[in-house]
Amino acid sequence: MAQATLRNVRYAGMATCVPKRILSNLDDCPPQLKSARERVVRNIGIETRRICFEWQCFSDLAFDATERLLEELKWERDEIDALIVITQSPDYPIPATAIIMQDRLKLKQTTIAFDINLGCSAYAFGLHVLGSMISAGGIKKGLLLVGDKSATVLEPLFSDAGTCTALEYDPAAPPMHFDLNSDGSGYRAIMLPVGGGREPVGLQHMVPVKDEDGIWRSKGALILDGPAVLSFSTQRVPPAVRNLLDYAECPIEAIDYFIFHQANRMINETIRKKLGLAPEKVPTTLHDFGNTSGASLPVTMTVRIRDALMAGKKKLLLSGFGIGLSWGSCIVDIEGAVFPELIES
């Protein structure tokens, strides 16, 4: 358990972009998979998802989100000192997507730009990394781009999104509190087994095999151990949230909204009930947007509580968990921040 407090860092704004293309798990599936999809909607809670067009990358969504956010913040591009991209869907294996985005966004060449490879827990980790750089005093304004392109037509869980969050140095800003954790012994629970140095892609990985649900998958497809993820999430997240509240000396009643990673309705409901939270304090976007990986926290903030965030000061507890295995939470006070309406690209 790594806990930390960051000072002098203001949450200035956030924008979310999703593809215009919508897939229905009930209507846009082969007839033989209809009953399986009905179970997904009933048990997991995902009915519709957003999927990129063939020509779109995650970075295209993040670019549109960044352009809108900079416009509404009225930030000059030569003010941006750092650009961090967290994704598992880079434009290319090399170079880093952040380097490409620095030029595409016409940021100055002295802008620090780099990628982080992380998924479901990305948002809390990313706020800590960028916030730490700003808190140290050398960086005044920075951008955090988080999201993935992970949706496919046949797979019913994942959805695509790109987000941009702006942080800036402000000695008057309230502190941000973090609790960040990882357990690599469970890395096989969610993994893409081929394509890296351990097992490069070969022809044998391209051959599809019919699984127990009647879906044809290649041997190089994503491995997702549902029971292991369920056990990990429901056992690790509630005590981590309590630990963070204790560390921050913040009563649970002081949190206006708890935003959890949107992976599975059963997981999120179990976490909510274990923490004794009222449903209205735990907004969800699973039904309409599916699992948007690291972007699920900002997606939910934009879609569900944007008006509340713009109406006055709010204290949020943000918690992401999953691939790694990793889990991270943070408490953030938001006041006077900019939140553009949901962007569809």
Rank of each mutant, 00 (worst) to 15 (best):
L6H: 00
Y11P: 08
M14T: 15
Q32N: 14
S35G: 03
A36H: 01
R42M: 01
E47P: 07
E47R: 10
R50C: 14
F53Y: 14
E54G: 05
W55M: 11
W55A: 14
C57S: 13
L61N: 08
A62P: 00
E72M: 14
K74L: 12
K74H: 15
R77Y: 04
A82C: 15
I84F: 02
T87W: 05
T87I: 02
D91F: 02
D91Y: 04
Y92D: 14
A98G: 10
M101H: 11
L105V: 13
K108S: 15
F114I: 02
S121Q: 08
A122S: 15
A124E: 06
A124Q: 00
L130Q: 09
K140T: 10
T163K: 01
P171A: 08
P175D: 12
F178V: 12
D179Y: 07
S185M: 10
V194P: 04
G196S: 10
R198H: 13
V201P: 04
V201R: 09
G214M: 05
I215G: 08
R217L: 08
S218P: 04
D225K: 11
V229P: 03
P238C: 08
P239H: 02
A240L: 12
Y247N: 14
P251Q: 05
P251L: 02
I252F: 02
E253Q: 09
Q262S: 10
A278E: 15
E280A: 09
V282H: 05
T284P: 01
T285A: 06
H287G: 04
G290V: 07
T292M: 08
G294V: 07
M301Y: 04
A308W: 01
K313S: 12
K315M: 09
L318A: 01
I323K: 06
C330D: 03
C330L: 04
F339D: 02
E341N: 09
E341Y: 05
L342P: 02
I343Y: 01
